[in-house]
Structure formats: structure tokens, C-alpha cells
Design a protein around this nucleic acid. Structure first.
Length: 283
DNA sequence: CATACCCCCTGGGTGC
DNA sequence: TGCACCCAGGGGGTAT
């Protein structure tokens, strides 16, 4: 689930019950996720005021009054459930503890943020806020796709001479950070580029055309997530569950949505991951 | 350095 | 209802 738009949505969803508030207690129910938690994580979180939340790529960064920053990654199946808060007249009760509730933030106002992650590909770590750029998970990340550093000139330069499929290149977080399997498929469909095409053998003009398409796809997804978050009554407090209408992702065998195209969406496997595309519209 | 695989882990869906 | 198998939105590590 979580690519950049979902992480942005989750961040926005938990911000109202974290920012400016003290973590009365951090409940840590196991020693690790993908990697061991940092030393004394529960103690270093408990009693800390949350100064603010940020997002870098697919990471949520929680700045604490202790001058430390909590890094959270949702992996493939990570979820954030909010409970104990009130939206309008609706109060969200705390749920019964569920399987895979690995970390629970008990906030001073009674709200809880529960990190649930069945597959445990997620991660948490603590770092000095001042040295966040040096963190081993952060330091090699490419530019934010919605930021100014990601532009046509940059992408053309980065893909020049690359022998790797464009699909793999756009999934490479060192080139551009935040895209995942779904949105890369969607972007390549909009661009009319076959996912197996070698990145270095696409014309500069077509590479450049990817930049605004990437921004569009991500912005639209963030907007969709934001709209679903507005109505807490319909949700159970679980974030990142909005459904998008994908044009190619997970649509193998279904008709291409392009007007006048009578082909069906094809699935291939590239470096172990599914790619969906229209063999007629994408070359 | 660039590229290709393998792996971590649990659960849902499908076919028999 | 059981079971075997495939698949999953991520990404680090290692071999080539």
C-alpha cells in the first residue's frame, strides 16, 4: 500500500493527534521490525513532546523535543490506526488489541496511534535531528518528486546511458524517491512508455515528459487520500485505505482504457515484481 | 559502478 | 475444511 501518496496521507492523518502533544507512553511490544529497534526506544519516546511531523520519501519523520527524530517506515503492510480522538461529535473508541500491533503511542490527550504491520517489513529508528541527513536510510535518497530539485534536466541527466529498464530506474529511490510499483506502472502508461524499455534509450523529450506526469499521478493520489481522510465517520481510523482507480495496475487481462484501443492489459515480471502495461499504447 | 537475484514475513485468494 | 501454491503497495544485501 504505502508509496509516497499513502505515506503523505498517513502523516497528515496522524498529525492532529501527535503534533504539539506529549507521548505519555510508548508501548513497544517486540524488539524489532525489519531491524532491531534502537536502544531504549520506549524510554526515549516516553514523555517527549512531538514538535512536528515531516515526510521524506516514504519515511515519516517525527521531531521530538529531545532533539531526536523518530523515523518510521511502513514497509509493505504497515498501518497507523488512530483511536481515542473525537472528530466533530464522533468519538473513536480504542479497539481491542490486535495481532501485529507492534508499537502504540499513547498521547497525553488520550489518543492512541497504533502501528500494525503483519509482514514486519516496516522499520523504526531514532536519530539526532541535526544529523538526519546522514542517516543510512536517508542519505542516498534521490530528490523528492514533488520538489524543485526533481525536474526535466535532472531526470534526463540521471537516465542518460542507463542500461536498466525504465521501470527499474523509476523504482530506484536513489534516482527519485517515493515512487513504488503502482505509480510507476501508472506513470509509464500515461507516458506511453513500455516498462522494459532501456532507460538510456528513451529520447530526452520523452524522459522529460515523465516529470510532469509523475507529479500529476502523485498529486492526484494525495488529493484522493486527503478527501477520504475528511470523513472519519466512514473510516475506522485506519489510514491509507483509499481506493484509487488505476488504469493499468492489477488490471491484467482487462481492456485498455484508451479510447479506440482494443488491446488488453498485460502483466510481465521485472526484477521479481509485476509490471502492468498496454502493449499497444506503450512502446 | 551497474545490474540481477534473493531474501526478510504474514496473510489473502484460488484451485483442487 | 484443508492444503498447496502464488501473489502482495519495499528495499537491503550479495554476487556477478
Amino acid at each position: 500500500m504505502p508509496e509516497l501518496p499513502e505515506v503523505e496521507t498517513v502523516k497528515a492523518g496522524i498529525a492532529p493527534v501527535m503534533e504539539g502533544l506529549v507521548i505519555a507512553r510508548a508501548e513497544v511490544n517486540r524488539p524489532d521490525l525489519r531491524w532491531p529497534f534502537p536502544e531504549r526506544m520506549a524510554e526515549r519516546l516516553t514523555g517527549q513532546r512531538v514538535l512536528g511531523l515531516r515526510r521524506r520519501s516514504k519515511y515519516i519523520l517525527v521531531d521530538l523535543a529531545s532533539a531526536e527524530t523518530l523515523l518510521i517506515h511502513l514497509g509493505m503492510s504497515g498501518r497507523m490506526l488512530i483511536s481515542g480522538h473525537t472528530v466533530g461529535e464522533f468519538h473513536h473508541p480504542h479497539p481491542v488489541p490486535a495481532k501485529h500491533d507492534h508499537v502504540v503511542f499513547h498521547m497525553e490527550n488520550g489518543a492512541r496511534i497504533t502501528f500494525n504491520d503483519a509482514r514486519r517489513f516496516g522499520a523504526m529508528d531514532l536519530m539526532e535531528t541535526a544529523r538526519q541527513e546522514d542517516h543510512w536510510l536517508i542519505r542516498d535518497l534521490g530528490p523528492e518528486p514533488l520538489g524543485n530539485a526533481f525536474n526535466e534536466t535532472y531526470l534526463v541527466e540521471r537516465l542518460k546511458g542507463r542500461n536498466t529498464p525504465i521501470k527499474s530506474a523509476l523504482l530506484d529511490q536513489r534516482i527519485v524517491s517515493g515512487l513504488g510499483n503502482i505509480y510507476v506502472c501508472e506513470v509509464l502508461f500515461r507516458a506511453g512508455i513500455h516498462p522494459a524499455r532501456k532507460a538510456g534509450r528513451i529520447s530526452a523529450a520523452r524522459v522529460a515528459s515523465l516529470v510532469p506526469l509523475i507529479r500529476d499521478v502523485l498529486s492526484e493520489a494525495i488529493a484522493a487520500g486527503g478527501s477520504s481522510l475528511r470523513d472519519y465517520r466512514q473510516s475506522d481510523g485506519e489510514l491509507g485505505y483509499f481506493q484509487h482507480v488505476f488504469q493499468v495496475y492489477d488490471r491484467a487481462g482487462k481492456p485498455c482504457v484508451t479510447h479506440g484501443c482494443d488491446k488488453t492489459i498485460t502483466r510481465i515480471v521485472q526484477s521479481g515484481r509485476s509490471s502492468f502495461f498496454c502493449p499497444q499504447c506503450q512502446r
